[in-house]
Every structure is written in C-alpha cells, then in structure tokens.
Amino acid sequence: MRTVYGAIAFAEIAIGVLLVVRMAIGPTVADRIVALNTVCTQAALSVLFYAAYADRSIYLDVALWFASFSYLGSVVFARYLERELL
C-alpha cells in the first residue's frame, strides 16, 4: 500500500515537467501564471501522498499551504497584470 502511495506521489509531480515546458515557452505572462497555479496544485497532491508514503502526518499541513497560497499568488499576479498592484 505504501508503495502505491509513493508511486502516485511521484507521478503527480512528474506531470509538472509538462507544465514547466509551458512555463518556458508561454508567450505571455498569464500563460506562465496558469502553469504555476497548476504546478502548485500538483505539488499539494504530491505532498499529501508523500505524507501517506512516509507515514508522517506532520507533512500534511504543507499541502494546505500549497492549496491556499497558490490562490493568493495567482490573485496577486493577476492584479499586477491589471496594473492595480502599484
């Protein structure tokens, strides 16, 4: 069972490679923000499954931080795109 959790954690973050490619070639800044938001979601899932793999429940809080701070970062960067941050 723990091996299954570890494999899921690895697969979830391996999807991030495709998103990093989009972050590299994205023509506009908003494309990169979309890729970054999805990377944060995948990282939250990966951290949850890695906590189940390593059997340490203290790792779980990092997933909550990932989920909530990807929202905060996305909204702040979007405000910057609208030129309302300055």
Partner: peptide, 23 residues
C-alpha cells in the same frame, strides 16, 4: 485540501482570465 481547491481555484481562474482580457 479538496474544499480549499474547490473553493479557491475557480476564483483564481476567474481573476486571471479577467486580468488577461483586460490587459
């Protein structure tokens, strides 16, 4: 985490799309 993702991610997507359309 599921509750947070369901609540916050559509909001951030909407804010991002609106900002991109405006800019």
């Amino acid at each position: 985490t599921a509750f947070l993702l369901l609540l916050l991610n559509p909001a951030s997507s909407h804010a991002l799309a609106r900002a991109a359309y405006k800019s």
